[in-house]
Simulated scan of single mutants.
Amino acid sequence: MRIALAEDEALFRQGLGSLLRASGHEIVVSAADAEQLLAEVVDARPDLVITDIRMPPTHTSEGLTAAIRIRRLMPDVAVVLLSHHVDAQGTVELLTAGGHRIGYLLKQRVLDFEMFAGVLERVQAGESVIDPEVVASALTARRERRAVDSLTPRRLDVLTLMAQGYSNARIARELVVTEAAVARNIALIFETLGLPQDPDIHRRVLAVIEYLNR
């Protein structure tokens, strides 16, 4: 396969690139950040993109955002995302992007390179492969967040308007309350749904998804 590899940790990128070349693959892009990946991937026309979710400059979701943009530009390109930790937001956005030929693995899986290489082949062939640990975490989180049914009527009203994409200011106007009151209710919604403040979790998105999946 012709592979585009994006990883800001130089040793990891070089090591993985060497293993892939030794397995007969061609590395057509070796990028240290998402910006470089996006700049080179269209001309390189790879069969598969491997990218870390967290990339410079903020080390949050640059790699994920780049992967989604690449799939929109080149829908037939296979994409495998890597992450050091289970990333709930990444799971939601990846699955929302939909389609086929998508993989999401924890970086530790690369240690079993034979398994990892097999996943790359499966994804490039048309399958979608999500790390079992990520799936288990998502299912556990979903069960825990059934608490949406215990929200008070007012908080359910707020969540309903959130699901319509309204800002706090618009919700306040709709319910004829202050923005401060809306913010308090949203904080209590997050608490009820078991969504602690975490840079890896987009709590507003997950709260809305739980509401829509009631």
Rank of each mutant, 00 (worst) to 15 (best):
F113P: 14
S61I: 07
T60H: 15
R72T: 03
I53D: 01
Y104V: 02
V49A: 08
P132A: 06
L95P: 01
V135D: 03
A66H: 01
D87E: 09
R101C: 10
F113A: 14
I130N: 00
L95A: 09
V92M: 03
D52M: 11
V119K: 07
E121F: 06
V110I: 15
A117I: 12
E133K: 09
S137Y: 14
P56R: 09
Q89C: 02
E121Q: 14
V77G: 13
L64Q: 00
A136Y: 07
G63H: 04
Q89M: 01
G98T: 11
Q124A: 09
R122D: 07
R143I: 02
H84P: 12
P57D: 10
A117Q: 15
Q89A: 02
R109L: 13
G98Y: 10
E93K: 11
P132R: 03
E133R: 10
L95R: 10
L105G: 09
L73M: 14
V129S: 08
V79A: 00
H85C: 12
K107S: 14
E121L: 09
A67G: 01
D112P: 14
R101M: 10
A44H: 11
D76M: 03
R72D: 10
L106D: 13
D43N: 11
H59R: 15
A141L: 10
Q108F: 13
D52S: 14
R54G: 14
R71F: 01
G126N: 06
T51L: 05
H100F: 11
S83E: 09
D112E: 15
L48V: 07
E62Q: 07
V79P: 00
I50K: 00
V86W: 08
L82Q: 03
L82A: 05
A67D: 02
G126E: 02
S61E: 13
I102A: 12
E114L: 13
V79Y: 05
L106G: 14
V86T: 11
E62D: 05
S83W: 08
A125W: 13
A97N: 05
L139P: 04
Q124M: 06
V86R: 09
H85T: 14
F113Q: 15
L81H: 00
S137K: 07
P46E: 12
E93C: 01
L94T: 13
T140L: 14
G90F: 02
A66M: 04
A88G: 08
L94W: 00
P57K: 09
R109S: 14
